[in-house]
Amino acid sequence: MIDHAHDLESVRGATERLLTAAAAMNNASVTESSRLPGWSRGHVLAHLSRNADALVNVLHGRPMYPSADARDADIERDAPRPLDVQEADLRDSAARFQEAGAEPADWSRTVELRNGVTDSASRVPFRRWAEVELHHVDLGIGYELEDLPEQFTQREIDFLAERFRGHPGLPALLIEEDDGRRSPTGHHEEAALVVSGRRADLLGWLAGRRDGTLLRVHGGTLPSLPPL
């Protein structure tokens, strides 16, 4: 069962870790490339701020973004800002998200995200948690997949395996963690391929942050994952 209140607190903790790490940067390092192709660290920070506001829209029943073009334009607009402005925006937008999450609500209701994707409102805090944790890694400032909270890593592997389950562009797979735990994903329920490895490496591959060369594949070759 999803505990949205627990996840909101986890978002708060992840945001504080991110803000502490960002405070060690400077204006020059904000303009440097992140680990995401075509994005500076300023792009990543701007995206995180605008994503918080977008998820407030979702919780309030509004469109997540006015349009895909508006989303991209806002990130481009905000990316060049100096570090202190980025930090303030990230802190303030995070506070707005926490305030929206604290409002009395029916957390079992269905909400709409980008591109027509729907989900339970109760999973919105976890989605925000994933944004903060993974994009903290994307900044390339010393926070790695191995540093993620174990509970988050486990849940994000489960979330991504569920997201790819039934996808026609992915063969049947079993994701096998280093403790033997398995999660089915891909197009069919009976999997011919088993992909195993450390949790950080499995998450990195599923989330598009690692190429999977450190994983073991039984029954074939490592397939290419569909875009997230």
Rank of each mutant, 00 (worst) to 15 (best):
G180P: 10
A207N: 01
G116T: 13
L139M: 07
R165G: 07
R109Q: 14
S93A: 15
N115W: 00
I75H: 02
L83I: 15
E177S: 14
D84R: 14
S183Y: 15
A105M: 04
T110P: 01
G212E: 02
E87P: 00
H136E: 03
S93T: 14
V117Y: 15
G42K: 01
D178L: 09
R35Q: 14
G13L: 14
H188N: 13
R96Y: 04
D106H: 08
R199V: 00
R96T: 00
P227F: 13
E103G: 04
L8V: 14
L214V: 08
A130L: 08
E144L: 10
A121E: 10
D158E: 15
H188L: 14
N26T: 15
D53G: 11
Q154V: 06
M25N: 00
L134V: 13
H218R: 15
D69V: 09
V137W: 00
A28E: 11
R81W: 12
H6C: 06
S10P: 04
E162R: 06
L173S: 09
E177I: 00
G186F: 00
N115E: 12
Y65G: 09
R198W: 00
S29F: 03
A52T: 04
L36I: 13
D7K: 04
S93L: 04
P184M: 12
E177F: 05
G220L: 11
W129P: 01
E150L: 04
A105E: 03
R12N: 10
E16G: 06
A95P: 01
D106W: 05
A207H: 01
E162Y: 14
G220K: 06
D158C: 07
T118Q: 10
R81G: 03
A94P: 02
S49W: 11
R81L: 13
R155H: 11
S196V: 08
S49D: 08
A14V: 11
S108I: 11
G13Q: 09
A21C: 02
P63G: 06
R77Y: 03
A88V: 11
D72I: 05
T31F: 01
E76G: 02
A54W: 00
L59P: 02
D69F: 09
Y143C: 08
E131W: 11
T185S: 12
T20V: 15
A5G: 05
D106G: 11
E150V: 14
S40Q: 10
G42L: 04
H187C: 11
L45H: 03
N115P: 02
Q151M: 06
A130C: 09
L174C: 04
V56M: 02
H4T: 10
L174K: 09
V111M: 05
F159T: 07
F159S: 11
G13I: 08
R41Y: 08
G166T: 10
E190I: 15
T213Q: 06
E103N: 06
I2M: 11
T110A: 10
Q98F: 14
I175A: 05
L134G: 01
A88I: 10
L170M: 08
